[in-house]
């Protein structure tokens, strides 16, 4: 019986939604192979989160309570995770395939000789005991299956919303404090301050179940208000095309596409977005796609499950109104 490790990405003391999805995915695979799941929590807050991590599948919890985890750039997390890997003897690490976490995985992989597969949307046990990881490449045009060589540890980065997070009712996991002594190199890059500018009551587009996105067709910055109102009835995140972020109507971190974020929510609603290939590269793996565009020839309609040919200035507020009354 072996342990598999799950690195928990968290914000404000709460595990991110994707981390709970990782735990459930790891738990299901571990049940088949007779393995157990150990979560790793870096930074303060582990004891408050333990119960919740247990109920989503963690049998054990390695933690390092130091503020240093996020006080310096990336390396303290790498070194603490390395300590967890050593303590556990795990051959498999699951991590959130999001930007800053990928850095931790990449650096640790070099240290311990692991193979890394990012943006994984499906997992199955292979014949040789290795995991077979499914991922979508070329902006969702192709699907590949890959695995890590037998002589390397397997680091698997999981995409948002690919697995459902399920509570299995288990209690708090056994906790193990990690003993971490940082190298000198680990403190060479300091985090001076953290600037949080995102709205706290709207979910991040990377993990939201529903994302509402606006493009050039909005016409000006103020029209993002329409999108935000729609988003707020749905509990959705708000994204944008590059035309909209380039125009300065919405910040770059909300850009969806080839040079922005890749999202795969349950539902994507695009308004005033033509569906250029570079935009599709970031959203075409969404489970359902809705397009609102006045041009019936807009390429986004080719991938839409539901399309409305019409003026977004009419359709979007009306949709918000309809949804509000249906909810009420």
């Amino acid at each position: 019986m072996a342990e598999v490790l799950v690195l928990i990405d968290h914000a404000d003391g709460e595990p991110r939604k994707l981390s709970l999805q990782l735990l459930t995915a790891a738990k299901q695979l571990a049940e088949d192979s007779g393995d157990t799941v150990a979560a790793v929590w870096l930074g303060p807050g582990a004891s408050d989160a333990a119960e919740r991590l247990g109920s989503f599948g963690a049998d054990k919890l390695y933690h390092w309570d130091s503020d240093d985890a996020y006080g310096y750039v990336t390396l303290p997390q790498v070194e603490a995770l390395e300590a967890a890997l050593e303590a556990s003897g795990a051959d498999t690490l699951f991590f959130a395939s999001s930007n800053h976490v990928k850095d931790v995985a990449a650096r640790l992989a070099i240290r311990v000789g692991a193979g890394v597969i990012t943006d994984v949307t499906g997992l199955a046990p292979g014949d040789d005991g290795r995991l077979v990881a499914t991922k979508e490449v070329f902006g969702g045009e192709k699907i590949t299956e890959s695995s890590v060589a037998a002589d390397a540890k397997q680091f698997i980065g999981i995409a948002s919303n690919a697995f459902a997070a399920e509570e299995d009712g288990s209690g708090a996991p056994e906790t193990v404090a990690l003993d971490v002594e940082l190298s000198e190199a680990a403190t060479a890059a300091t985090v001076v301050s953290v600037e949080k500018v995102a709205s706290a009551d709207r979910p991040d587009i990377g993990e939201a179940a529903i994302v509402v996105a606006g493009g050039r067709g909005l016409g000006d910055e103020s029209k993002f208000g329409l999108m935000e109102q729609l988003a707020d009835v749905l509990g959705a995140g708000v994204g944008a095309s590059r035309a909209a972020t380039d125009a300065g109507w919405y910040p770059h971190r909300y850009q969806i596409g080839q040079t922005g974020r890749t999202i795969s929510p349950m539902l994507y609603i695009g308004a005033g977005i033509s569906g250029a290939i570079q935009h599709r590269a970031g959203m075409q793996t969404s489970q359902h796609i809705v397009a609102i565009n006045k041009d019936p020839e807009a390429p986004i309609f080719q991938i839409a499950d539901f399309g409305v040919v019409g003026d977004l200035n009419q359709v979007v507020p009306k949709l918000t109104e309809e949804l509000t009354s249906r909810k009420g």
Binding site: I289, V290, I292, P296, F301, A304, D305, F306, G307, V308, V309, G310, D311, Q314, V315, V316, P317, K318, L319, E321, E322, L323, R326
Partner: peptide, 19 residues
């Protein structure tokens, strides 16, 4: 997918909401 045309009043929004 299903494509509906709005008549200029935003009424297609009701169909989308149904969906």
């Amino acid at each position: 997918g299903t494509i509906v045309e709005d008549d200029g009043s935003g009424s297609a929004a009701a169909q989308l909401a149904d969906w």
